[in-house]
Design a binder for these strands. Structure first.
Lengths: 337, 337
DNA sequence: TTGTAAGCGTTATCAA
DNA sequence: TTGATAACGCTTACAA
């Protein structure tokens, strides 16, 4: 059932139906009733595609994230979806599966779909590659990255601060050999957290040692490998700081397999307050990111842009240290007491 | 930049450009090159909206789930997105936030967006309410529910079997007083798992006792309450079967607070192999659902429909019992040995 | 091999 | 207050 068919049925012009639906005040009460009744009776639904074409506006925004199953992203996506749908926007969600190819395909697709805006939470491609995608005038909000593309808003976490507070916590407990499992330094989440770690150590008068830093790719398996590597050093750390939750899961498994008892034999602290962190034994001390707030902020920034704001805006969120039971003083300090 | 503008630039007809892009073999090599170069140079992107309108096909499917943050759904959504995007469909994701109102709004919206199909993973509204939404000819695949709507495909888990294998496992270990923390019986996931529990007991010649069954709403707090209730009975169970992961988290906390040691004092088994189940102490024995397979199956069923299949199809998946360390023989059996 | 022209279902402009 | 009509940007008969 289309507008025209309905119009013929009611013996009015298509324009009248359209008006009765979109600007009811421009139509006489009598016809309005008649139209609305017919709409209900025939369960007529306007064709959003046709409307979008005509209006040059899709009321749709695209989300690109690297892994929907990662609680970090699913938390943010949920908040975004919630905020946008309250403003009559719908979300097209693309999972880049940690792949640059999929990311670029997704962005290209979103460009063709003429989404009203894009929220981009994946740090694969460089800004030049993105610009070449020809996303023209589509407003973009970046989460957890700042590509430097002109006219782009950004939602960030203060990664340096988060890492510092984590490492400071370990230092305060008396640890001096603190290991780190870092993400790839080419990502801001990788380099920022690494930098926070380095700064905290230096500020405490400890010179960082390359031996105590292992690199992963933010995924579980790499966390396990990195933990193994740290344990195999001549003088292993008494505490580990892990740059994200997935790698922390891997590291934890490795520590358990190695027969280490937490926190007596090893303190562990990681980024992201995912649900399982609370249920593990021992419950994990973590640096929590305010996911809901960050997702809402991203959605808000986009809505403001769509409403006309033009100056690039950046919002930086503060992480919160949540102390649980996976961190404690190191043995040689703890036992004598 | 539109097709027509590009055509003027190249001094060819719009049709030629369209053909060069969509049916390159219908165009001379020379013009094809010329067109493709111009497309690149001006980074022209076809307008997907216009194409959809013209073709009457959006290459888009809608997903409606009750909670994106729940690992069960995010796992399924990821698999669906992955499968569909490989077939050039994109996903519009709607989170119903456990609310019937949002669910119906979402479905209505998807109808207007003229999605090619819908995958529906939320058990809020009845089939009559859904039919009234006038989703007309849009194919629907339902996950974890079977509303009975005509022309609908279904992906299910064999909940009865899953519950039976869980309870059978406990019975084989020698338990005779097995408690259950059930979900709401009005949901198929609630009633199915309860039925499996009852059947397993009866088959073993044990008459189920109302005292040993506590009901929750699939959320954490209710699991804790239910566990407390079971512990307070005159003759408490020696093992508990919990119908989902959230309630299991609550139950586990309650058992720990009660000072019970697992599995010596109490065996615990739950549905859903979420990540934390592996890291808790002791690691939880669970009934695992094949999320990826289920998501893929849902996507496949939809693709088949879109390719022309008409007979309603239902795919039932078998859960898998994953035995870890939270289940063991009851004390009176275990100690004498 | 290429061009012409109709039309997908709306909304918006202009007249009546 | 209503109606006729022209877009929106693309694809596809049909014609040349």
């Amino acid at each position: 059932m289309t507008l025209v068919e309905l119009a013929q049925l009611l013996q009015v012009s298509p324009a009248t139906i359209s008006r009765a639906l979109n600007r009811p005040e421009m139509v006489s009460a009598r016809t309005r009733e008649r139209v609305l009744k017919a709409v209900r009776d025939h369960s007529y639904r306007p064709n959003g595609i046709a409307r979008s074409l005509r209006k040059g506006e899709t009321q749709t925004v695209g989300l690109v994230v690297s892994d929907l199953q990662n609680p970090f992203y699913s938390g943010i996506v949920k908040a975004i979806e919630h905020t946008l749908s309250a403003h009559d926007y719908s979300c097209i969600v693309c999972d880049a599966s940690e792949s640059q190819g999929k990311e670029q395909r997704a962005l290209k697709l979103l460009g063709e779909l003429k989404v009203s805006g894009i929220i981009h939470g994946f740090s694969g491609s460089g800004s030049d590659e993105l610009e070449r995608l020809g996303l023209d005038g589509i407003p973009i909000v970046e989460i957890d990255r700042a590509s430097g593309m002109p006219g782009t808003d950004t939602v960030l976490l203060d990664n340096v601060l988060g890492a510092r507070s984590a490492v400071d916590h370990l230092l305060e407990l008396g640890h001096t050999r603190v290991g780190m499992i870092s993400g790839p330094p080419r990502l801001t989440t990788g380099s920022g957290r690494l930098e926070g770690y380095l700064r905290a150590l230096r500020q405490a008068g400890i010179e960082p040692s390359d031996e105590l830093i292992a690199y992963g790719d933010f995924r579980e398996a790499s966390g396990r490998n990195a933990a193994r590597k740290l344990l195999a050093t001549r003088s292993p750390p008494t505490a580990m700081f892990v740059a994200n939750n997935e790698m922390a899961a891997g590291a934890l498994a490795e520590l358990q397999d190695a027969g280490l008892e937490l926190p007596a034999d090893m303190s562990l602290i990681s980024f992201d307050d995912v649900r399982w962190a609370r249920y593990v034994t021992p419950p994990l001390t973590v640096v929590a990111q305010p996911l809901r707030e960050m997702g809402e902020a991203a959605a808000r920034l986009l809505l403001e842009r769509l409403a006309g704001r033009t100056d690039p805006t950046r919002r930086v969120f503060q992480p919160e240290l949540v102390i649980r039971q996976s961190t404690a003083p190191p043995r040689r300090v703890g036992i004598p007491a």
